[in-house]
Amino acid sequence: MARTQVQSRINGVDTDFLCEPRQSVLEVLRDELGLTGSKEGCNNGNCGACSVLLNGRVVNSCCVLGVELEGAELTTIEGIGNPDKLHPLQQAFLEEAALQCGICTPGFIVSAKALLDAEPHPDEHRVRFWLAGNLCRCTGYDKIVRAVLKAADQMPEKV
């Protein structure tokens, strides 16, 4: 199948890639660009393990086609924090033991970042509502919700 050239900006880096029209953003990230932090749990938008920020908005990357990234700005888990300076969400997930197996963790952090970017100080119900598109089977969500609320405490007031 013919491959299409796509120009996008991924994690702050101008990124050109070739992909088949049928390939999803998740496939492009994982198979073409080697960005395997976004995980495949269901490949139909149910689990949120592949959550990314497309022009600042959370999407399931398995449900967006790679060719749709033309001219788009994408942030994946690889573009959030780094080992020297973790994002407050990442630090809070570690401190609150908000991961067990860790496979859902990138999706939760991406999704929660979008929430805190828009609403720095959500309450518990708002966090639960926002994260209902991300499945976790290990933690029962208790420590994940606590971690997001803890990170929210460190968010500056929105100006």
């Binding site: 395997t36 932090g37 888990i77 690889e78 924090g81 080992p83 990442q90 997930f93 860790g102």
Partner: peptide, 10 residues
């Protein structure tokens, strides 16, 4: 193994 897992590197 936490940092690797919260940064998507694991």
């Amino acid at each position: 193994d936490g940092v690797e897992k919260v940064t998507g590197k694991a």
